[in-house]
Amino acid sequence: MTIAVGDRLPDLKLKERTPDGPADVSTGDLFSGKRVVLFAVPGAFTPTCSLNHLPGYLENRDAILAKGVDDIIVVAVNDHHVMGAWANSTGAAGKLRFIADWDAAFTKALGLDADLSAGGLGVRSKRYSMLVEDGVVKTLNVEESPGQATVSAAAAMIGQL
Rank of each mutant, 00 (worst) to 15 (best):
V142W: 03
K15F: 14
L58Q: 12
L161E: 05
A156H: 09
Y57M: 07
R8N: 11
R97C: 07
G28S: 11
S89T: 10
K67W: 01
I158E: 11
I73Y: 07
I64P: 07
A44D: 05
S32N: 13
V142P: 02
L161G: 05
I64H: 05
V25P: 02
R35N: 14
P146M: 08
D113H: 12
N78F: 13
M1G: 11
P55T: 03
G21P: 10
V75Q: 02
P22R: 11
T48I: 05
F98P: 05
G28P: 08
S117V: 05
A85E: 15
G159K: 14
T48P: 00
M1A: 14
T46F: 01
D62V: 06
I99K: 04
A4M: 12
A66I: 10
S50K: 13
L131P: 06
L9Y: 00
A153N: 13
G111L: 12
K95D: 10
S129N: 08
L12H: 05
T48W: 00
Q148A: 14
P19C: 13
A40V: 02
P55N: 06
V136N: 09
D29L: 02
A156N: 14
E16W: 00
V37M: 03
F106R: 00
V142N: 03
E133F: 00
V25F: 02
V36D: 05
K95R: 15
D101K: 01
S152E: 06
G120M: 06
K34W: 12
A155E: 15
A87Y: 11
V41G: 08
D134A: 15
E16N: 06
D71Y: 10
A44V: 03
S26V: 02
M83D: 03
K34T: 07
E144Q: 14
A100R: 09
L96K: 11
V69T: 13
L140S: 11
V5S: 11
I158D: 03
S50Y: 04
T18W: 07
A104P: 04
A23E: 14
L51C: 04
L38V: 15
V151F: 00
H80P: 05
R61P: 04
A155T: 15
G68L: 10
G147E: 12
A87G: 11
L65I: 15
Y128H: 10
Y57L: 06
N88T: 08
V123Y: 03
A85W: 05
P47K: 02
A104G: 08
T139E: 10
W86Q: 07
R97T: 12
F45L: 08
S89F: 07
A149T: 09
A153M: 02
D101Y: 01
S152N: 07
T46Y: 01
G147C: 00
A114Q: 15
G111H: 09
P47H: 10
H81Y: 15
L54S: 00
L131Y: 09
S152A: 14
T2L: 11
D11T: 13
G135L: 03
L58G: 06
V37A: 08
I64C: 05
A100G: 10
P22F: 06
S26P: 02
D103G: 04
Q160D: 09
